[in-house]
Design a protein around this nucleic acid. Structure first.
Length: 199
DNA sequence: TCGAAGATTGTCT
DNA sequence: GACAATCTTCGAG
């Protein structure tokens, strides 16, 4: 297992962190076992001036995690049934974070299969922000934990060459929908939406 | 206390 | 492709 990413990794522009998280490995330990996957899709949320960011509504108990230290986890509950996981970053002092949207399963395939009984195959285990949380067993209990030293960690993975990285508008939001803040590894078969060449 | 909206997913047509 | 499921959160009254 490669070393966990240093706190300084997250203390940079959120867009930069989102791009560099591609290829890194998200790993979660639970009483049931360990599951991990390579990050192949991320989205950046830039703070209170970003209408799509939770911080746009101001500081509330729900968004408290966004105001945490860079390198901690922000895990929130949505649509009455889904968890989504973010890595908190720091952009000029603003509450910002990177949403992990899709993973390529690496460890704990059997565990993921049990947690994702509806998945047809490994490509369905973690190809969506709520799916990957279910597959890895991520819940609100992990909100605010440090991503270097906890049951939820992000490790250095492979380096994705620039020609295999694409930036597109974010998905599933109703505000600031045109901002190109979604990073994907175009060569991956595990994206939440297939890459269509940017068209 | 009430009502509306939500960084989604799964099912049905 | 369209829509229902499901419930927490937050603002308004």
């Amino acid at each position: 297992m490669c070393a966990a990413l240093a706190a300084s990794f997250y203390e940079r522009r959120t867009e930069r962190v989102a791009r560099d998280l591609l290829g890194a490995v998200l790993r979660c330990e639970t009483p049931d076992g360990v599951a991990s996957g390579r990050i192949v899709e991320t989205e950046a949320y830039l703070g209170e001036h970003d209408g799509a960011c939770h911080a746009a509504v101001g500081r509330t108990p729900r968004t408290e995690g966004l105001y945490g230290e860079p390198g901690t986890a922000y895990v929130y509950f949505t649509y009455g049934m889904h968890w989504c996981a973010n890595a908190v970053t720091r952009r000029a002092g603003l509450p910002s974070a990177v949403l992990i949207r899709a993973l390529e399963p690496l460890e704990g395939l059997e565990l993921m299969a049990r947690r994702r009984p509806n998945a047809a195959d490994a490509r369905d285990f973690a190809n969506g922000p709520a799916k990957l949380c279910a597959a890895l067993g991520i819940t609100g209990a992990l909100n605010g934990v440090p991503l270097r030293r906890s049951r939820l960690t992000i490790h250095r993975g492979i380096s994705i060459p620039a020609r295999e990285v694409a930036v597109t508008p974010r998905i599933g939001i109703t505000k600031a929908v045109d901002w190109p803040l979604r990073w994907i590894w175009t060569e991956s078969e595990y994206l939440s939406r297939p890459f269509n060449g940017g068209a």
